[in-house]
């Protein structure tokens, strides 16, 4: 209990979970139509958004397709690998 006349300050430290980015990498074999299909299937994206991300992968060599908690990001990378797409997990900047 505080003494009378003293002010007690409580400092609460909240640690936010570091966001992780799921990156899809370009490869010369996977069909563009397939990459779009997989992004729609795994992430539930609309075709338009999936196509934009697919084109980013194709033209820039990589695209961040999702960002969020580590556990879910790991799950998504595993799903992308199961669909034979090159993918990685990085701490989001």
């Amino acid at each position: 209990m505080s003494e009378p006349g003293t002010i007690t300050k409580t400092r609460q430290k909240v640690e936010h979970e570091v966001p992780y980015a799921v990156i899809v990498h370009d490869d010369p074999v996977n069909l563009m139509m397939y990459v779009t299909h997989v992004l729609m299937k795994i992430f539930g994206y609309q075709e338009k958004k999936a196509k934009v991300l697919m084109l980013e992968v194709h033209q820039l060599g990589r695209s961040t397709v999702w960002a969020g908690g580590k556990e879910k990001a790991e799950f998504y990378v595993q799903q992308l690998h199961a669909h034979q797409l090159k993918a990685s997990l990085e701490k989001a900047s």
Partner: peptide, 15 residues
């Protein structure tokens, strides 16, 4: 090894 080649995450970590 296809499973290995799909993984582009940095390889030197515990993860």
């Amino acid at each position: 090894d296809l499973a290995e080649s799909l993984n582009c995450t940095a390889q030197e970590t515990d993860a």
